[in-house]
Design a binder for these strands. Structure first.
Length: 109
DNA sequence: CTCATGGCTCACG
DNA sequence: CCGTGAGCCATGA
């Protein structure tokens, strides 16, 4: 378990600026379920070391934040992410793929 | 070990 | 598009 947790945290650090990811993606990446990822995030003792704010829900919702959703939004905006009504704008484009597989541009909103 | 929760997601209406 | 219910995993009491 610990290894997977660390893996998730490492993946967070791999996320380039201006990009985000979802709990589901991380969960699949490490072989865990989204919920577990969320729990790990909550239990993250080093939010400044691991940018857990870059993790959002599949729907593009911010989900929550141990330090407050407000803060999460600010962090995301600081990275260039645009928040629309509490949701990520063009999440599809902002999603960071940890693997170079078929990339296709799509837009929403 | 069992029970309850949580930064979730998906399937049905 | 939104509300509801069920699934599934880790953590803490």
């Amino acid at each position: 378990l610990i290894d997977k947790k660390r893996k998730v945290l490492e993946l967070l650090q791999k996320i380039p600026k201006g990009k985000v990811t979802t709990y589901a993606i991380l969960g699949k990446k490490v072989g865990l379920h989204p919920r577990t990822v969320g729990v790990i995030m909550r239990g993250n003792d080093r939010p400044e070391t691991y940018p857990c704010y870059k993790v959002v829900a599949s729907d593009g919702r911010l989900g929550g934040y141990n330090q407050g959703s407000k803060e999460k939004i600010r962090q995301l905006e600081n990275d260039g992410i645009v928040i629309k009504r509490g949701k990520i704008a063009s999440l599809r484009e902002k999603l960071h793929k940890f693997d170079n597989r078929g990339q296709k541009g799509l837009n929403d909103n």
